[in-house]
Nucleic acid binder design. Structure first.
Lengths: 162, 162
DNA sequence: CTGCTTGCAAATAGTTTGCACGTTC
DNA sequence: GAACGTGCAAACTATTTGCAAGCAG
């Protein structure tokens, strides 16, 4: 829980409202399933796999199917409400598009840190200026070691990369 | 495919040699399958999925199984010879660890561009200085649009900065 | 000879899809 | 009422694994 980014629970309703508007704007229907998925993502501080969302939802609405979660996520992604990243071998992780940030994933403990935007913004600008490469998604993942794990491996002498 | 030395890039042989040494150093065996996998990666300019490697190998050695390719890649990754990244929903892409670079993946045409190291080096340094996050892997993927696709989507190429 | 490697096939994990029915607008 | 969304099950893709036979050292 060492997130330096400000966590705004007050924004939860705003996200919901914005999403509903977006769904309507595209001729879509606002269904319990979709509301549940959005709530699950908001509740989970922004980093969840499809299955985690599914499990969270199951508690309150056992009738919602996993495939619906996937389809809803796809729809929400098309609406620009959520995005997903592949952090490793397994499942993808979804988060609100509002949370424009880079994921710093610790290889050792799996912790996900959010890098301040300004650090990467410059990189994006330079990529565009020098290579003409336009980073549309505004997100990517950086694999490495968090402060603690790095320190541990430096000092402890436990070198065991899996 | 064929192990004809000398005709290819000068670095190809060096990679092979280094890899053989690494395999031996870890008590592993140098097998035709492993040589074929390494050659396939080197031949392919560094960006290949497991299946592409498999197909390349099939041409010369139809007896090598896909699962062997996976197992070999895993072994080579453990030895620090190759690395892999997940660029999208589908398969992972493998490349030589020597090729320390960032992948810029064009969302639209799928082209993979390699960003010059210095662009990202600064980001890495700042991540370490400000967050204590140490980017061990020295690689990550940035999704976006290449110059051409970006221009096309802009609609007519209004400006032309080079 | 010894045990790391491989081929094969079957298993897994994560995600997608076809179809008929239920819901939302 | 029509179009969109959903449940369900089955398909699919990428990758992994158990086991016995095969080779490298």
């Amino acid at each position: 829980m060492t997130l330096t980014a400000g966590a705004g629970h007050a924004s939860a309703d705003r996200v919901l409202e914005r999403t509903i508007k977006a769904i309507h704007a595209h001729g879509g229907r606002v269904t319990p399933a979709r509301l549940a998925v959005i709530s699950a993502i908001v509740d989970s501080e922004g980093h969840v796999s499809a299955e985690e969302i599914f499990e969270r939802i199951q508690a309150g609405s056992p009738d919602i199917h996993l495939s619906t979660v996937y389809r809803t996520l796809e729809a929400l992604e098309k609406l620009g409400v959520v995005e997903h990243v592949h952090l490793g071998h397994g499942r993808a992780i979804y988060h609100l598009e509002e949370n424009l940030h880079q994921h710093l994933v610790c290889e050792s403990c799996g912790k996900i840190i959010e890098a301040p935007r300004d650090l990467t913004e410059r990189l994006e600008m330079e990529l565009e200026a020098r290579l003409g490469f336009y980073t549309r998604a505004h997100h990517f993942s950086i694999i490495g070691l968090c402060r603690d794990c790095h320190r541990r491996e430096q000092g402890g002498g436990t070198k065991n990369p899996t």
